[in-house]
Design a protein around this nucleic acid. Structure first.
Lengths: 156, 156
DNA sequence: TTAGGTGCAAATTCTTTGCACCCTG
DNA sequence: CAGGGTGCAAAGAATTTGCACCTAA
C-alpha cells in the first residue's frame, strides 16, 4: 500500500486499455496481481505479490504471478529492478563510476563522469536512511544488439 | 580483459594488503579469481569468472568462485550489480523516478526529482548503444536497519 | 466456441552447504 | 601444526515449463 486510490484505479484502467490493444485476456488473476503491484510502493517480489493476493484469491499460484508480471513487463506497464532473469554480476572497479546496461543482451559497462559523481540528492531521500553511494544507471540497446534487431523482429 | 596491466597489479596489491589486515588466507585460487575480475570490464558472473580461470587452474570449482567473490565483496574489494542474493523486484510506477535501496535489508523505495530526471549523459556512453532511460540509484542503510545495527554488531 | 490462461507438479538454473582432505600462515 | 580453505556432491531457493482443464472474449 501507499499509492493513492485514485492513482491505482487510473493504473488499472491503463491496464485494461493495454490488454485490449495487445489482445490479451484480462482474467481476475491478472487484475488482482496488477492492482496489488499498482498499490504498492515496496517493489515487491513475485512471492510478496502472491502473499498479498492470496487472501482475496486463495487459488492463485506462484507461477501465474510470475507469468503475469513478465506479461505486464512486456506490455510496458511494469518495470523491474535489478537484472532480469539473470545472475549476479561482479565488479572490481573501486573508483566511483556509473553503469550502462543493454536491456536486450545484458551487456554491462562502466563509464565515468565527474559531473555525475557530484549529484545532489533530494533531502526526502535522507529521511529514508543514510546515503552511502550514488550512481547513475543508463539503459539502452547496445550497438551489437541494434544490429541484430532487424533479424529478430523479422522472426516475430 | 580491458584493464591496464599496471592497474591490475595495483588492485592485486590492494587485495594482499586487505587480506593480511582481515586475517584471511591468500590462496592461489583467490588470487587468480580476483586477478581475473580486476582485469575485466565485463562485470562477469561467477560462471564467467570460472571459465576464465579454468585454463590456468583446471581444478577450481564454481563454489570456490562464489565463496571467493562474496568474500571479496565483504572485504570491500568488489561490488555487485543488481540486488545481492535476492530475487527480481517489480514496479508499477511508470513515472520517471529514482531508487533508494537499503544494502542491509533490501528495502527499495522510489523518489522523484526533476533535477535528476534531466541528467546529461556523457557522449562516451552513446558509443556503447542507444540510451532509452536513465535513473539514479542511491544505496545506504535505511532507518530501521540503522536502529538494529547496534544489536547485530554485538552478535559479531 | 476456442484460443489463450490457469494450476499443479516436475524441471531448470543459480547459488549455497556439509564434509573430508589440503595448505597457508 | 592448526584452522581456514578447497573440491565434490548434494541441498536449497528462485524461476520456468509441460500438460490437461477452464474461461474470457
Amino acid at each position: 500500500m501507499g499509492v493513492d486510490g485514485k492513482e491505482v484505479e487510473r493504473r488499472v484502467e491503463r491496464l485494461q486499455q493495454a490488454a485490449r490493444k495487445a489482445g490479451v485476456k484480462l482474467t481476475p488473476q491478472r487484475i488482482e496481481i496488477f492492482r496489488e503491484l499498482a498499490a504498492s510502493i515496496e517493489h515487491p517480489s513475485a512471492e510478496m505479490v502472491l502473499k498479498a493476493v492470496q487472501p482475496r484469491m486463495p487459488t492463485v499460484s506462484l507461477d501465474t504471478v510470475y507469468r503475469t508480471l513478465w506479461l505486464l513487463a512486456d506490455l510496458g506497464l511494469v518495470s523491474t529492478l535489478g537484472p532480469k532473469r539473470a545472475s549476479v554480476r561482479f565488479d572490481a572497479n573501486l573508483a566511483s563510476h556509473h553503469h550502462y546496461t543493454c536491456v536486450r543482451c545484458g551487456l554491462a559497462r562502466d563509464f565515468e563522469s565527474a559531473e555525475l559523481d557530484a549529484l545532489r540528492i533530494p533531502k526526502a531521500v535522507k529521511e529514508l536512511g543514510s546515503v552511502a553511494s550514488t550512481h547513475v544507471e543508463v539503459r539502452g540497446v547496445c550497438g551489437r544488439c541494434a544490429k541484430n534487431q532487424a533479424k529478430s523482429s523479422r522472426n516475430k
